[in-house]
Design a protein around this nucleic acid. Structure first.
Lengths: 217, 217, 217, 217
DNA sequence: GATGAATGAGCGTTCATTCAT
DNA sequence: TATGAATGAACGCTCATTCAT
């Protein structure tokens, strides 16, 4: 009440933290099981509340999922866009930066599971698909495109079909995320992601670099 | 009876065709909806039979799914292995052959949906995961590894980490399959798969080719 | 074909034996599982025929069951009635004879399972209940009543309520049958039926014998 | 709120009563139809709730059945054991007491149907069989054994095979229960249980009593 | 006579969502 | 704000019975 160190009583702090706790629990379970297979009862249990409480904060399962995506992915996209906007180094370095940054912030974390989940289940939940495409995929794609265009414009990368190459470049990163999810049960042994990314970046930068100039006569 | 060209009554022909009809219907719906979301009632309806009839041919949902995989994927793997065994041309051409063949026989067809489905749901159905890994993934991986090793041994590709590169190389193909599935709802516009594959093969072969020899003094 | 020792070709013998084979298989499975839990498919399989064939010989599950009862129980009741009709010895011996005969012919065999089954499921299948009561239970009861009446009339048993005592006397025999069925799972260890029957007969004959005459003054 | 006599809202009273209502409905229907033939939908309907509600209180059909047994039989066994422990009268009277008590508390009530059901279906549901044997049958048997041993030790009963006699003595009581169930459809007319028990006790005590001493010379 | 493919009603169980408290 | 009891529609699977061959 009159606690000198905090203007808020503990229960109020609790109340404000609720949505975060719910989102954390939901992320865990959505990622473990997928969207359809997640039982809201499990989310509530893990968050230490009752099932009904979930509905005080989120209208339904889909809205809960959207909130999880917003909470966990949008801030990272914001930061990545900032990096591109202000980058000063070579485009090869920017490539590295973006890929490894993505990996560190998303690919190597639980959040990667959301991407996997969306690839898998968007067909059954069209509203989620639209939401995810507009708020996440489109922004990610655009960033890769901008980075490749920058390389071509600056004469660092050879002339390529930027759009398609962006897709090709994104693919192995997404696949790595999928394979990493829970020692992906379709792969016998877990991938070593560091060396996978090294192979990937190596292959790409080799593939993108300008062809050797023909020796002048 | 009095049909001069067939000694079999219509009914018997029907009976022999049943499993194929059921597998075709099952493939459609598994691919449309995923494993968990597929209702056996829908499969039966699409095949034009009753729910009970399914159980005359397949013990349960998992066995039905395995049969779909066996029917649609194993013959293609057999053929691809034959091609590698007997290939005479350059490794770059073999690379093209395998990728484009895979695309034509699987990626561009409904069957691609099985791969997507497995990535998505293997975590929830461990027995299916094991089955798929052993009978499909492991064989596909091994083929790519053999192709890359062949290129390195013959001095056509530079020295690379064959295992990891195989993973990197497989990834964009799998991603393309996933994106193609039903105008994948995470992508606004469908990819042009021909040009995607061209970009992909181009990038890879550029990335794999031997570095230019330094000009002799 | 022209076998000199049999005027019937083998397949004709087969055809005539069919119903017996079906009844034997049905007895086995009805006794193992009960009426409701018996699947006609299992009966057919055990008899080595198809499910449809069953319906050539028996109208439905209930009629099959009735045929099993008629085949296995009625002849034994016939014989027991003959014995009572013509018995010459003491009533205590007749008591023994009936009980042990029943045990030997029914109690110790698979047929005992039918009695157990009827006790259990008659409530759910009223038509079977009526059939069994009229064709089996009523005749068995009547035999015990006659035997007791004979003992009382001949001054070998004390004066008792014959009807009720008949019920009391039948009960332990029926229970023994039920306990014997498949090492009845409600009993840890199988009963030793010989000593059980000995205890039972001993108890009954002791209980039935004339009270000792008061010593005359 | 403003009800002066009860601090509990109707709803809360409801909630606490639920399990009892469900158990009562389940007892009714299990006894009417048997275990396998009982449809949980019917249980729910009789209790006035939806099918799903059942699963809030009982994990599945088997657990529901076990709960019915615990609720209805265990307390009675407890009391009966107390009686034996502290009994002061003759063993013949204790015999009467136990038999009539059992009859009054179980045999004459719906609960008797559970015993019938177990005899009938234990073969098809081994887990239930084990449960029932351990928690009910074994304790009942042990009580009869103790009562007979007491009679023999005190010189009230003649020397008998206590274990087998216990089985023989239990049998007519169990049979009576089975016959009583719903005017048991295998018996034309309902038994008069009072006179049946009288005949039974009479027969047993006559059969157990010490033989008359031979007249001393 | 014999087959066995086909049916379809039925049951145990699950879970997102609601709402009285 | 928080609860958790209640719902009811949905789905995988079974099996007695039918009937074209």
């Amino acid at each position: 009440m009159n606690c000198p160190f905090s203007s808020k009583p503990r229960w109020a702090r609790r109340k404000e933290a609720r949505p975060q706790e719910l989102l954390a629990a939901a992320l865990d379970i959505f990622v473990e099981r997928g969207f359809a297979a997640t039982r809201l009862g499990d989310v509530a249990t893990r968050a230490g509340v009752s099932k009904g409480t979930l509905y005080l904060y989120f209208e339904n399962k889909e809205e809960l999922f959207k909130a999880v995506v917003r909470e966990n992915m949008l801030p990272i996209l914001d930061e990545a866009e900032d990096i591109i906007d202000s980058y000063g180094g070579s485009s090869a370095d920017l490539f590295r930066e973006l890929i490894l940054g993505w990996w560190e912030r998303i690919g190597a974390t639980k959040v990667a599971g959301i991407t996997k989940l969306m690839m898998a289940e968007s067909g059954n939940f069209p509203e989620l698909a639209t939401f995810y495409r507009e708020e996440v995929s489109a922004r990610g794609d655009a960033m890769i495109v901008r980075m490749l265009e920058r390389g071509v414009e600056r004469g660092e990368f050879r002339a390529i079909d930027v759009r398609q190459t962006a897709n090709v470049v994104i693919a192995p990163v997404i696949m790595l995320m999928m394979w990493q999810q829970a020692f992906n049960p379709c792969h016998a042994e877990p991938l070593d992601s560091a060396s996978y990314l090294e192979s990937f970046i190596d292959l790409c930068l080799n593939g993108l670099q300008m062809p050797p100039h023909p020796a002048p006569a």
